[in-house]
């Protein structure tokens, strides 16, 4: 599925200073019953965001209109648990294009990049600085420059660089995906498969 190219993103951010945010919180299993990728954003953080009667929980950050933006900032070990890509779909479909944390779970990180969300891993200290800045001023803007691999707190210029491999970076900047790449090398795959001693 095509996604928006990622080059430079400047946006306010939504803070979620909780550690080990798992994929069951991002989207509970009972909302995984669709056979199409539609409207998963509606159930993003469902049980933290809504009461049992579907009324919004006023103390949850997504229900607080002072926090907006295309960047979600989460505590350490974001996205642990299940391999459900629905978690990344929910975040994307809600409108986020980037998740910032000091540590990501592997599968979530891979799924995110595959669908056009940039996971930005920063130091524990920089993450704290971001949380403090947003707490002091919800209008705080961050700039994420993928080509330069930097994340900047615009107000004071505080900056860190982040890692991403060259192949995936190129994919995100150009909106490419792995399936196109793999389709282009099917002959190599065919001969690799044929040469395996045990099939």
């Amino acid at each position: 599925m095509a996604y928006d190219k990622f080059t430079v993103l400047t946006s306010t951010a939504v803070p979620l200073p909780i550690e080990n945010v798992d994929t069951d919180q991002i989207i509970p299993a009972r909302f995984l019953k669709a056979t199409e990728r539609k409207n998963f954003g509606d159930n993003l953080f469902r049980d933290w965001r809504y009461n049992n009667d579907d009324s919004p929980k006023q103390d949850f950050v997504l229900n607080n209109s002072i926090y907006t933006g295309k960047i979600l900032v989460g505590g350490r070990n974001f996205g642990s648990g299940s391999s459900r890509e629905h978690a990344a779909w929910a975040i994307y479909d809600y409108g986020f294009r980037c998740v910032v944390s000091s540590f990501f779970a592997d599968i979530f990180k891979g799924n995110s990049i595959n669908i056009g969300i940039l996971p930005v891993q920063v130091s524990e200290a920089f993450l704290e600085e971001i949380f403090r800045a947003i707490e002091a001023d919800p209008a705080t803007e961050l700039t994420i420059d993928l080509a330069a691999q930097t994340i900047t707190l615009n107000a004071n210029g505080s900056q860190e660089s982040f890692d991403i491999n060259g192949y995936k970076k190129n994919n995100l900047i150009n909106g490419f995906d792995d399936i196109d790449y793999l389709q282009a090398m099917k002959e190599n795959i065919q001969s690799f498969a044929a040469s395996k001693p045990i099939k």
């Binding site: 299940s82 391999s83 459900r84 890509e85 629905h86 990344a88 592997d106 599968i107 891979g110 799924n111 595959n114 669908i115 491999n165 192949y167 995906d177 792995d178 399936i179 790449y181 793999l182 389709q183 090398m185 099917k186 795959i189 498969a193």
Partner: peptide, 21 residues
């Protein structure tokens, strides 16, 4: 475990793109 994008990769090419852990 893999995500759904990777399920599509395996179906269509029997491969995925993985950095070695």
């Amino acid at each position: 475990g893999i995500g759904t994008s990777e399920v599509e990769m395996v179906l269509s090419s029997q491969c995925i793109m993985q950095p070695k852990p």
